[in-house]
Design a protein around this nucleic acid. Sequence first.
RNA 1: GUGGCUGUAGCGUAGCGGUUAACGCACCAGAUUGUGGAUCUGGGGAUCGCGGGUUCAAAUCCCGUCAGCCACCCCA
Length: 450
Amino acid sequence: MIDPRVASGLRDLPPAQAVPRERMLKVLREVFGRFGFLPIETPHIERVEVLTGKGAGSDEVLRQIFDVTNKGGTAGELALRFDLTVPLARFIAKHVEQLGTPFKRYAIGSVFRGERPAKGRFREFTQCDFDTVGSESVVSDAETAQVIHDSLQAMGVPSFVIAINNRRILDGLLETFGVESRKAAVLRSLDKLAKVGREAVLAGLHRGEAEGGAGLAETQAEGVLRFVESGRGGLEVLDAVQGTLGSNPSAAAGLENLRAVLGLLAAAGVPEGRVVVDLGLARGLDYYTGIVFETTVTGWERFGSIASGGRYDNLASLFTTRRLPGVGASIGLDRLLALLEEAGWLGGSISTAPVLVAQFPGTELSVVFSAAARLRTAGVGAELFPEPIAIGKQMGYGSTRGHRFGLIIGPDEATAGVFNLRDLKTRQERKGLPLADLEAIVASALNEPA
RNA sequence: GUGGCUGUAGCGUAGCGGUUAACGCACCAGAUUGUGGAUCUGGGGAUCGCGGGUUCAAAUCCCGUCAGCCACCCCA
């Protein structure tokens, strides 16, 4: 016997998970489409050179990448994509002349990372990316947050917060303290504030670079931290920063951007409190240059971000000399589903056909087979039970699968040209309905509230 | 990739050196051969993750390995 297990970090999805997942994908496509984003597809496998940025790729990427080898091919040439942004960069570089800008696309698909799996963290997971390439407008910045908001809302996530910040404010901060050269290490430390607390962050900032710290003097570390700590909230946070960093051109630009974004989102009717400024939000990815986003579900912060992204100055610089700024985000569908499932918010019927047509022992098979076919033709999902077993068993099957109605045609009904329609929830049964009006009767019954 | 915790029927657990591994839920059958989630009765299902070692004897101790979880790292 071969052990039917799957490898670490990979999983099977039974209908109870696959059905809600399909529904969410449908919702996401609708929302993306409503904003004018168009779908694209790129291969799951890319050339390693593309993924790693020709050797210039970070160690982190190299560590997480899955190699793919085909017999006869060149070893180490191909690998599985680890996100959808790098493939987008390659895609846009190749096709921008035909597509023109601004170009808004969405892409939904599996990505692969050779990480150590944990809760809500897998080695294959689906990303739902949307990006606007070729515009530096604040419209796109605000729209990105709005799409995140509308998506989560439409998927039925009860309560969430989209944190925003602007890298340029942080740039200004670092310039002011004269520590631009330590940017990456400083941001990495600050990003952890909510998680590890102020003392740990302070220690990280102060610790020497050799030990993985940022190597800041104590006054610098304290100052930088104090600044970040001052800010999580709405416009008042921006006003406060205006006073301390407003004279720095970079910070001023960042502040103006966030102010405009908050204004537009309010104008679009995004509820107050759904989007908050968080000056400590940095995001590890070093290609972000402007606004950044990170979204958590209220009460489930330990699952980490379920939707995040940001603005980048020049997405495709590895692939073309043409400068292509853009902004976008990615919704982590699998993490969100894992969260909703654990929170018990997934519920609902998993049946995709509302009517279960029973196969009554003794009834001519063609009678029920054609009844099911007629319903489907009329656009009503109908499942014919495949075995002529005890009728109660069949009703039980329909009930546990979440079918709304059981349709019963016994030998007596068949002779009389009628059918019975049983509500599987209330156990109420309407009997002797004319078979000639099958479609109309069932359709109208389905329109009644459950 | 580093460190730690865990691994017993589909799921959740008990047993933690000594006869045929226990319980709940789920599943199947019957009471109920034209009507399902209750009750009762009966039943199937586990080489105790896998491999090796210690011992007269291992689910139980040791080592390795795989998987899950936690922290670091990173991120959806």
